[in-house]
């Protein structure tokens, strides 16, 4: 269920043409790239789902349109094998096989003192087999990131600040709509604001191109040469960048 009372988001401008959410084409594109559950030994699966319910991938006006926005989500399922657990299973299995080999050797004629070991290929096969089995039995982590798309303004809000999630949204959006999501960073948004101002007669865009960094402290020989210092207390934390 989509709720927006508290949210974190990154803003993007759509560069390119995206079909209107009022048209079937828009919903068909989402369906083509909808979420499909993890198969076999896949470690990650992602695709579009509705914003209201990440189990629903049926897109139409009723499930997508919210006021002037199109709302949907990118669902990402991931599963992984815990390396320590895999190692523990592997060690137990190796010990069991070595014991079985020693027991066989002891029963064989002239055996008992022969050193047994497991070859590199067998170890690799064993590890892969265990990994595959553990992967199939593991429960995936499930995330869903809400996307709000305003078609008239060509604006998209991605409701997460996670870098990996935002990059995946941009990638999947491009694959789906053949359009780019350009982050509205201070630089990008400033260009747009000054472009709108220029239509009113004042063009400050050249000045934006020529900006130089401001130092809000007064640069003196002493301050430029010595490290910054502030007085730490309980509310202060000095962190190396």
């Amino acid at each position: 269920m989509l709720t927006l009372r508290t949210q974190s988001f990154c803003r993007y401008r759509i560069h390119g043409d995206v079909p209107s959410p009022y048209r079937d084409t828009f919903h068909e594109r989402l369906k083509e790239r909808r979420f499909l559950p993890l198969q076999g030994e896949e470690e990650r699966a992602y695709g579009w789902a509705t914003a209201d319910n990440l189990l629903v991938t049926d897109f139409h006006l009723g499930t997508v349109l919210r006021g002037e926005y199109a709302a949907f989500s990118l669902r990402v399922d991931k599963r992984r094998v815990n390396a320590r657990l895999l190692r523990a299973h592997f060690d137990l299995e190796v010990q069991a096989r070595l014991k079985a080999a020693r027991d066989d050797g002891a029963g064989a004629e002239g055996g008992g003192r022969r050193r047994v070991k497991i070859g590199r290929d067998e170890r690799r096969e064993l590890r892969e087999g265990l990994r595959s089995e553990m992967l199939k039995n593991s429960t995936p982590s499930v995330d869903a990131y809400t996307i709000l798309l305003h078609p008239k303004r060509k604006i998209v809000h991605v409701l997460t600040l996670g870098r990996a999630a935002n990059e995946l949204v941009r990638l999947h959006f491009r694959d789906t709509f053949e359009a780019e999501l350009v982050p509205l960073t201070p630089w990008q948004r400033s260009q747009e604001i000054l472009e709108a101002d220029a239509l009113g007669g004042t063009d400050l865009r050249p000045a934006l191109q020529d900006l130089r960094r401001t130092d809000f402290g007064r640069v003196t020989a002493t301050s430029a040469a010595t490290p910054d210092r502030t007085t730490p207390d309980r509310s202060t934390e000095e962190v190396p960048s």
């Binding site: 130092d215 430029a224 040469a225 490290p227 509310s235 202060t236 000095e238 962190v239 190396p240 960048s241």
Partner: peptide, 14 residues
């Protein structure tokens, strides 16, 4: 965040 000298961060919370 500092720009000159040591580029350290200062976080003030309370």
């Amino acid at each position: 965040r500092g720009e000159r000298a040591a580029a350290r961060r200062t976080v003030l919370r309370a």
